[in-house]
Design a protein around this nucleic acid. Sequence first.
DNA 1: TGTGAATCGAAACGGATCGTATCGTATCTT
DNA 2: AAGATACGATACGATCCGTTTCGATTCACA
Lengths: 208, 208
Amino acid sequence: MGLSPRTKANQTEMQAVRGGRPRSEQLHQAILQTTFDLVLRDGFRAVSLEGIAATAGVSKATIYRRWPNKAAVVMDAFTNKVGSGTLFHKSSTVAESIRLQMRAMAKSFRGSDGTLVKALLAESEFDPELAKALQERWTLPRRRMAILVIQEAIRKGEMHSEVDPEDVIDILYGPIYYRLQRNAGALTNAYIDRIFHTAMKGLGTKNS
Amino acid sequence: MGLSPRTKANQTEMQAVRGGRPRSEQLHQAILQTTFDLVLRDGFRAVSLEGIAATAGVSKATIYRRWPNKAAVVMDAFTNKVGSGTLFHKSSTVAESIRLQMRAMAKSFRGSDGTLVKALLAESEFDPELAKALQERWTLPRRRMAILVIQEAIRKGEMHSEVDPEDVIDILYGPIYYRLQRNAGALTNAYIDRIFHTAMKGLGTKNS
DNA sequence: TGTGAATCGAAACGGATCGTATCGTATCTT
DNA sequence: AAGATACGATACGATCCGTTTCGATTCACA
């Protein structure tokens, strides 16, 4: 079943979908928008489905008809806005385009995206369905894009050929998520640049 | 007040501590042990204080007399076992002792420590008091130790002198927490070694 | 030895929220 | 017009929270 909105197909083993009053797309958007606003204002934990229903001017049943629980609604409210994610752009070198993408990601994390990603990641620790949804809809697409770019950097001789692109991602992006999730300092451009350059150049000297 | 066990001093502005029946140290340990076991078995979210009380054979009031909430009990149940943390040991080079410490940390994360750290970190996103306690009792002590070692590595010429030790920590340990919190692959020794060596050597070539 | 003080277990409390169910009304398809 | 589904309102049982009360217990100290 997963965390996707319930469709008429998976909701129950109901007969063919024809007939009946259709669901209101307007209510759908109202629910997602309200959820987005409330979670940003009050935090994931403080928001209840009853609160969302009341604020959106909708009955609880209408929400439960479409999503199985709060995490699913928030997940949709989030992906509804974020879209496909921060893309890589061409630049002078491939490595440079990676640095700029890291900056773009940090910038989005400084705003509402960061707040919601943080909440969803934390909640996913307690909710396997949400974890799966985040993995499929957030993490994996981004990692796949990054791997392609890193492989290109390796092909062009900008990165060592023996490194595993997966490890490169962990080293470059691990610190960003680390800071995001711990509130361990602002994700400034300066920080991103330092992480990038330090990782590229390496920590060690010839003596190590 | 914080997340520490309530003491007679901070519990209320009660008069001097003399007199009265003393708290049972045996119950204290029973509560912590039960909490530890239950959280490992059922997960942080699934465990309730009522369940802990029932299993430990203790009344709810006895728990609330000592801790303000569930997170605080789990935090104590955890630090009660973990002790001061994985230490750095002397080795052939300072860098080598860092690698070995990373391995030791990964090993502890493969066991019950990892399960509890993960749960506490996630929960701390929703609980500022817990976040503060984790910062003070877990993160900061470890970072302080690591900084000293990294500075030593720099002094001995094993690491570049222009790098910020804080950034070194983020680059080396960020990936470990990243994997831990996402369940993104096992924290094997091989993984640790790859991250360490890749970070030490650097991702880039002379062309980047 | 007894007296005060705090702890203990048991139990009940109000409150929040969950997810479900019921019912009458509204709205769409055929 | 008939059938099917969405919708709002409302109630429900359940769980857990954190607090409170009570009588009984256990200790320190005079």
